[in-house]
Each structure stands twice: as structure tokens, then as C-alpha cells.
């Protein structure tokens, strides 16, 4: 049983402690949602796990300390989907997806059969085969997002970290993406994604980690984390929480009474 264990992770950016002693355990086949207000430290938490910002604490996958690995080795365990969908040049869809194979082959080596198969599988899975020769810069936002997900899939890692993958997508793409993450987890991967849509988080994630001011405010099953009390404390909003179509609906409807008083005071 693979387990990703993040213990007591802290990260400091320009003298400010942005992530402070956050721990998370995610088992094989799980999809964890990372939620919390803007500036709660979600992105920095993910970036710190990936070694993109200096951090203290331990990140273990099946007991292997990932932070002690060389970056290229770590890249075979962890794939990262950042919030920015930046692609600098008008490369073809296929070429961008194939970039995901970089951590797997030696410098100057030609792509192996395995590399080609992984690229092909990622293209097929994201329904991009018809686009393979198109320039990524000519695609719509949703299509471009699919290309970048395919790139991360081609990396064939047991763990996928996604930073606000739902941002800027229409409802159809959002639901398709959550379904994909569920499927990836069902295949035995560990998926951790930060998001702001609480209903989608509640309906699709197994567990939620709620961050506030760099601390873990709550962690557990969605119905336990997303309570009216917590939402008021952390997001300072009043929320409608109900059940419909076989799942939770969490819809913020106004600023909390506490917040209103602060504003008036």
C-alpha cells in the first residue's frame, strides 16, 4: 500500500512563514482536495512539497524521503500541474505532451518505445489525438489545459499535484477534470489538488485539507470539514450547505455576521 506522508512541512518566503507545520497523509487511490482562502498557503504548500521553494519537514512516499532525492529522480515520483497555463512557444501538442518524458530518459538519448507509448497514452486519454499537430498557442483555454494535463500524465508518476486546475474552466471541463482525477486515483495514483469550488471539492474528493494562515485548520472527510461553523471561521462567509443529486452542495451566499460587524465597526 503506497502512502504519501507529508510531516510538519514549513516554508518561509521573504521572512514570512507562509506554511507552518502542515502534515498530510494520503493513501494510494486517494484524491485529496486542498482548500482555504486566498493567501492561506495552498500553492506554497504544493510548491514546497515539490522542492520548488525551500522548506523544512519530511515528504515520504512509501518511506522514501523525496526531498533527499535528486530533482530528476524526484520528478519520477511527483508530477506538477501549476496554475499558470504558460506555453512560451508555438510548439505542437504532441511535442508539449512528450516533454513529460524528460525525467525518464538520459541526456541526449532518443525517446524510447516506452516514452512514445506513454506520450501516446496521455494524448489518447485527454482526447487530443486529432490535435496532435496543432500549435498549442492556437488552442482554446480548455484545450490548452488538457494538453498540460496530458503532459503531466505522460510523466507517469505515482503522485500528481495540481494547483487550482479548475481555474478558468467552464462547468463541463471542470466536471470532466474532477472525473479524471477520480479515475487516476482509482487506478492507484495519489492525487492532491487545490481548489476554490467547495461543492466540487465536496462531491469529488475523498478527503479535504483546509488551510488557514499557513496552518492546517481541519482535515478529514468533506462532510466533516465543510461545516457552517468552519466556513464562517475560515472564509468569513455564510454558506448554504445541503444535499442534492447524491452529494453535498456548498454555496457561499453572503459575508458572515462577524465580517459585517467588522466592516461596520
Amino acid at each position: 500500500m503506497s502512502v504519501l506522508a507529508i510531516e510538519n512541512l514549513s516554508a518561509t518566503l521573504s521572512g514570512r512563514r507562509v506554511v507552518d507545520g502542515v502534515s498530510l497523509t494520503a493513501g494510494k487511490g486517494s484524491f485529496t482536495g486542498l482548500i482555504g482562502p486566498n493567501g492561506a498557503g495552498k500553492s506554497t504548500f504544493l510548491r514546497a512539497c515539490l522542492g520548488l521553494v525551500p522548506a523544512s519537514g519530511a515528504i515520504r512516499l512509501d518511506g522514501t524521503d523525496l526531498s533527499a532525492l535528486r530533482p530528476a529522480q524526484r520528478a519520477r515520483h511527483l508530477a506538477y500541474l501549476p496554475q499558470e497555463r504558460e506555453i512560451a512557444w508555438a510548439m505542437s501538442v504532441e511535442a508539449v505532451v512528450a516533454l513529460g518524458r524528460l525525467p525518464h530518459h538520459a541526456r541526449f538519448a532518443a525517446p524510447s518505445q516506452r516514452d512514445k507509448a506513454a506520450t501516446e497514452a496521455a494524448l489518447t486519454r485527454m482526447d487530443l489525438c486529432a490535435f496532435r499537430h496543432r500549435a498549442v498557442t492556437s488552442l482554446s483555454g480548455g484545450e490548452r489545459a488538457r494538453v498540460l494535463i496530458a503532459r503531466a500524465l505522460a510523466q507517469e508518476t505515482p503522485v500528481l499535484f495540481a494547483d487550482e486546475p479548475l481555474a478558468g474552466l467552464d462547468p463541463q471541463h471542470q466536471i470532466a477534470l474532477m472525473r479524471l482525477f477520480r479515475e487516476l486515483a482509482a487506478e492507484g495514483r495519489i492525487v492532491v489538488a487545490s481548489m476554490h469550488d467547495l461543492t466540487l471539492a465536496a462531491r469529488w474528493c475523498d478527503r479535504l485539507l483546509l488551510l488557514e494562515g499557513g496552518h492546517a485548520h481541519a482535515e478529514g472527510r468533506p462532510e466533516d470539514v465543510l461545516t457552517a461553523r468552519t466556513l464562517e471561521d475560515v472564509y468569513t462567509v455564510e454558506a448554504f450547505i445541503g444535499t442534492a443529486a447524491g452529494g453535498l452542495i456548498v454555496q457561499p451566499v453572503g459575508l458572515s455576521q462577524k465580517k459585517k460587524e467588522e466592516n461596520h465597526g
Partner: peptide, 20 residues
């Protein structure tokens, strides 16, 4: 060469793929 290819997706993605 390879590092520049990876950098087309931004420095964070490049670093996450093991580029120094």
C-alpha cells in the same frame, strides 16, 4: 537543449521535471 524545451512550460514546471 532539453532544459530549454522544459522551460517553455515555465520555470516551475521545468524544475518539477528535474531541471536545475
Amino acid at each position: 537543449g532539453r532544459a530549454l524545451d522544459a522551460l517553455s512550460l515555465g520555470p516551475d514546471v521545468a524544475a518539477s521535471m528535474g531541471v536545475d
